[in-house]
């Protein structure tokens, strides 16, 4: 006689009730339960992103560096603008490009994420928010590639990071949250209205000039400062420059409160709109 197999540990039965309009009280818990799927989806995107390209991950370096060169030429040489605190201009631009690239990539990837994963959405259940959230994978890897390059350029220019460099991750987080807030709303809109796909590149193209990437925020006339800060990336970029290079003051003039408010509103609206529409994704996508 062999020992009978020990019975499987009695897990509490997972009871689910499906009803129209039933608010899922376990939503955030479910999101946590499915965290491995979040990682897998992000990992897939990273693994696939530079497949069948010749220079592969170098694209993460080439694109921002070329942008830095162009913006330096246009703003510093042609328009004769100068950087706050006399920082070497390419470095000044690069410190701004880092949060901007993160924002632009997360916004672009997350807005298209649901549509690009339509086969998953219409065939399997999981908390839908995982899809836009997982789209931060590629931008974060690209960011990780940029950081050593920044360090090299800073060393070359002889700039030592000031004490406030410890806050740099917070400003990056701010850029990330801003992008996700808008991204959540845009990706649910995209399910129904494919116009979003064409609007995003347009917004990002203008965003480069509406954000202080090639110039300093102080160049904007004082009477427009508050309105200018309606673009939350102004605060994120000024914050990065302040924490990396020790130039400017992101909190001057109180515009930062406008940026933070816009981000918070975008985040709340994004999450609410996403949750209100996610139940119909499978029917519409």
């Amino acid at each position: 006689m062999t020992e009978p197999l020990a019975p499987a540990p009695a897990l509490p039965r997972h009871k689910v009730i499906l009803e129209p309009g039933r608010a899922d009280r376990r939503y955030w818990y479910d999101l946590w339960v499915y965290r491995e799927l979040l990682l897998q989806l992000a990992r897939r995107d990273v693994a696939v992103h530079y497949k069948q390209t010749v220079i592969g991950g170098l694209w993460a370096v080439v694109r921002p560096l070329v942008t830095v060169v162009i913006l330096t030429v246009v703003f510093s040489r042609v328009a004769k603008l100068d950087a706050d605190g006399g920082v070497w201009y390419p470095l000044y631009v690069l410190a701004a490009m880092i949060p901007w690239q993160l924002f632009a990539a997360v916004l672009g990837e997350s807005s298209n994420s649901l549509v690009n994963n339509a086969n998953l959405v219409s065939k399997v259940y999981f908390p839908r928010m995982l899809v836009p959230l997982s789209s931060v994978g590629v931008p974060l890897v690209d960011l990780a590639v940029m950081v050593p390059i920044l360090a090299v350029l800073m060393a070359y220019a002889g700039v030592a990071p000031p004490w406030q460099v410890v806050f740099a991750p917070l400003f990056l987080l701010f850029a990330l949250v801003t992008a996700l807030g808008f991204g959540l709303a845009l990706c649910s809109l995209n399910v129904k209205y494919r116009d979003v796909r064409y609007v995003i590149p347009f917004i990002l193209q203008f965003g480069v000039y509406l954000s202080p990437i090639g110039y300093a925020t102080s160049k904007v006339p004082a009477e427009y400062q508050l309105a200018y800060h309606l673009n939350p990336m102004v605060f994120a970029i000024d914050g990065m420059r302040w924490s990396l290079l020790g130039v400017g003051d992101p909190f001057a003039g109180g515009g930062w409160a406008v940026s933070v408010a816009v981000t918070l509103i975008a985040g709340v609206v994004g999450v609410r709109y996403f949750r209100a529409t996610e139940k119909t994704f499978a029917d519409v996508i």
């Binding site: 499906l18 009803e19 129209p20």
Partner: peptide, 10 residues
């Protein structure tokens, strides 16, 4: 994958 319009499933 999709929500019912009426009724209930347990």
């Amino acid at each position: 994958i999709t929500e019912p319009t009426a009724g209930r499933v347990t």
